[in-house]
Design a protein around this nucleic acid. Structure first.
Lengths: 253, 253
DNA sequence: CTCTGTGAATATCTTCACAGCA
DNA sequence: TGCTGTGAAGATATTCACAGAG
């Protein structure tokens, strides 16, 4: 099955574009904050500002979910929180395992945001026998030998890989064989998985390199400008994780 | 405010599309691995497989950099490593500060991939006075009061924020005021920055939510199928930022 | 012949701009 | 009115498919 070329048509899962799905968590976070402040409704303009996107995009995104707003008024915060949560599948509980309990794995285990939204750390797994039984974030680390059993006993379908790069593919294979179909990969490697398994990666080094690229370009273009330029407060804001506006590129003063 | 309409033409930094820039680090990693194995040349097909992308995309990406390949042969590994490194600005040294030395900050400080490619941890900064002076990853933590001085003395233009969400914007403002123009944000908040400052974010919780969305859909579509995968159903795959597709691409033995 | 480089065709995403409901 | 919802336009990104260099 080497050179796949199964060429799926990119298949936006149901009818919701992938780009929209990636923004839903952002909206949800902003809405949750509003909800905690007991704000009853928001306009697309306000919510968009809070989420760091433009309002037309937000409205278009919501239009894929249905018509949950009221013209002339805005969106009901609580209702929207519920709808987005449901759409994202956060109304159910997702047991997650973290494999590789080094510095990063431990940090992830301790990360509060984990538990907050439907995700529950079902187990911590590490290959080092010395770690076995040692509690991290209140959860005892288990040995890799138990991996398959843990996955099955807990009905885990989401796995987080925080091992060194060299071990990642092997761990991945075992997770998938045991039934995991979604993987969040922190190891700096490309993982091969069968069709039907989702992989997302988080890679510090790649992010820094992308920043360096733009940084270098800034230095080159402003070619003489030294330090902090208090650009007229223009306060654009970092939108998506990816393409944020930036790029002064001969800014039109 | 929001509706600035400054409408810069999206300005792909020079002429290199953002999507291509985001993949260059991936290619570079694959090439570096080949280089270490002393492989002299690669075809677009092989390199694409190693990087987890399709070969047409890779060739198109490289075409933005110039014509560095040889028809009928492939690409010279060493040469390409050099060209991509230069394009990404990795031939120079980038001092980086990490602000917020909790579990995550400490993990990042210890992360090897940091130093590997032109990035150097110039300083660790934390608001907790009790942390001051304590070495993490061999680097003594300094107090937030020193932030501006550290940035200026070291000529830092890239900052990493690993503080709690509540402190992130404030830290961000100080970094920017001190001269930082690229920020990697690990805090689960949207940061506002002036024009000309790049922000990229890494957010565990968002990634998990995106996986949950697809996971839910899988469960729904296969609707009767119990455990193991092997769904014939339509497949989406890791999209967005992690454009490693399904990519079986097993090494051609 | 093989494999790059690229125009052209698609597919996807973003933004505009405005009809029309509350 | 004020704001949502959305067709249509515009911008990016991906993929195809093949001319042509080596």
């Amino acid at each position: 099955m080497a050179t796949g070329r199964t060429h799926r048509p990119a298949t936006r899962s149901r009818g919701i574009p992938e780009a929209t799905v990636a923004r839903l968590p952002l909206y949800l976070r902003a809405l949750t904050a509003l909800s905690e402040r007991s704000v009853p409704t928001v306009s697309s303009e306000e919510l968009a500002a809070a989420a760091g996107v433009n309002s037309a995009k937000l409205r278009k995104d919501f239009s894929y979910l249905g018509s949950y707003g009221t013209r002339g008024v805005g969106y009901d915060v609580e209702y929207l929180v519920y709808q987005i949560s449901r759409e994202l599948g956060l109304t159910q509980d997702w047991p997650v395992v973290i494999v590789g309990i080094g510095n990063l794995g431990a940090a992830l285990a301790n990360y509060g945001g984990f538990a907050s939204r439907g995700f529950r750390v079902a187990a911590l797994i590490d290959a080092d026998p010395a770690m076995a039984g040692k509690p991290v974030a209140g959860i005892p680390v288990q040995h890799t030998d138990e991996l398959e059993k843990i996955i099955q006993d807990n009905g885990v379908s989401i796995g987080v890989i925080a091992t060194p790069a060299g071990a990642a593919q092997q761990v991945c294979d075992r997770l998938v064989a045991a039934g995991v179909t979604s993987i969040l990969n922190f190891a700096p490697t490309v993982l091969s998985v069968p069709d039907g398994v989702d992989v997302r990666k988080v890679d510090l080094s790649i992010e820094l390199q992308i920043l360096a690229f733009h940084e270098q370009r800034k230095a080159g273009e402003e070619a003489g400008n030294g330090a902090a330029q208090q650009a007229a407060a223009a306060r654009s804001d970092a939108a998506d994780q990816g393409p944020d506006g930036d790029v002064p590129a001969v800014m039109p003063a």
